[in-house]
């Protein structure tokens, strides 16, 4: 079965790097289910700045080779079972970060510069385990002042779900500016939306400030309730019961397989 969402998911290559947003910022769950159906493999996930059920499902489906993140959890539903199992088994490469380091890497990419300096990190095991992060002495200081450089993060693809887009491909992201950061930094950005509106978003000054211009958007598809079971600001709340149901199922390999299988059956029906 092919849908617009599948058309989007098919544009993500196996072996590529995909940036995904935090739980409350418009998680493209419909596209995640499509990725699992297609079986796109060897993905590197960049969680901006943390991951949840989306990352856990892709890891559980064996489609992820590496994760850069500040955390992966199911929030109130507890730890991320497939992520935790993969860590225990050593089956995914881990790039543990702290939230502002991921923002710094995206910010560097946004500005087209090779790195961004940031405070903190010195003396942590995060830094010790990140050979790609460098400590330099602040060249603008007269006294010794070590500071960490975070290299630019250039995801191949950014994916997220938003309330609406217009016919020109402008997408309304409201105050969820991390979605813009992801899109600025990524080579392509694929967006699912609840609806496409006829009125041009940039013609309304109130909406324009929260609009990501189509310049940064590669392709759009409609996916109603496309963030479910996560919520979407101003549209619908998170379905905590469903996330708890997943958390319970994903504790075992079989439970996870059943959950994914049932989802697939539902999509095919």
């Amino acid at each position: 079965m092919s849908t617009d969402v599948h058309r989007l998911a098919a544009q993500i290559a196996s072996g590529s790097t995909v940036a995904v947003p935090v739980d409350y910022a418009g998680v493209a769950m419909a596209m995640t289910r499509a990725l699992i159906e297609i079986g796109t493999s060897e993905l590197t996930l960049i969680c901006v700045p943390t991951g949840g059920m989306q990352a856990d499902m892709l890891i559980g489906a064996g489609q992820v080779r590496a994760v850069e993140t500040s955390a992966v959890s199911l929030g109130e539903a507890g730890g991320a079972p497939r992520f935790n199992a993969a860590v225990r088994e050593g089956s995914i490469a881990l790039r543990d970060a702290t939230c502002p380091a991921i923002h710094a890497g995206l910010m560097a990419a946004q500005k087209g510069v090779p790195f961004m300096p940031m405070r903190g990190l010195i003396g942590s095991d995060l830094l010790r385990n990140r050979p790609d992060w460098t400590v330099i002495d602040n060249p603008t200081s007269e006294t010794p002042d070590p500071i960490v450089l975070i290299p630019a993060i250039h995801p191949d693809t950014a994916i997220f779900h938003a309330p609406m887009a217009d016919r020109e491909g402008n997408v309304w992201i409201g105050r969820r500016r991390e979605l813009a950061s992801m899109a600025y930094a990524a080579r392509q950005t694929l967006v699912t939306v609840e609806r496409i509106v006829d009125k041009r978003l940039l013609d309304d000054e109130t909406l324009a400030a929260g609009t990501l211009p189509g310049l940064y958007v590669t392709d759009i598809a409609i996916a109603e309730k496309g963030a479910w079971p996560y919520g979407l600001w101003g549209e619908y709340p998170t379905d905590q019961e469903e996330i708890a149901r997943y958390a319970k199922a994903a504790r075992s390999d079989d439970g996870f397989a059943d959950y994914i299988g049932a989802n697939k059956a539902e999509v095919m029906a």
Partner: peptide, 9 residues
């Protein structure tokens, strides 16, 4: 556990 979140900063 989930991870370091913003603590490293």
């Amino acid at each position: 556990w989930p991870g370091s979140f913003g603590s490293g900063y």
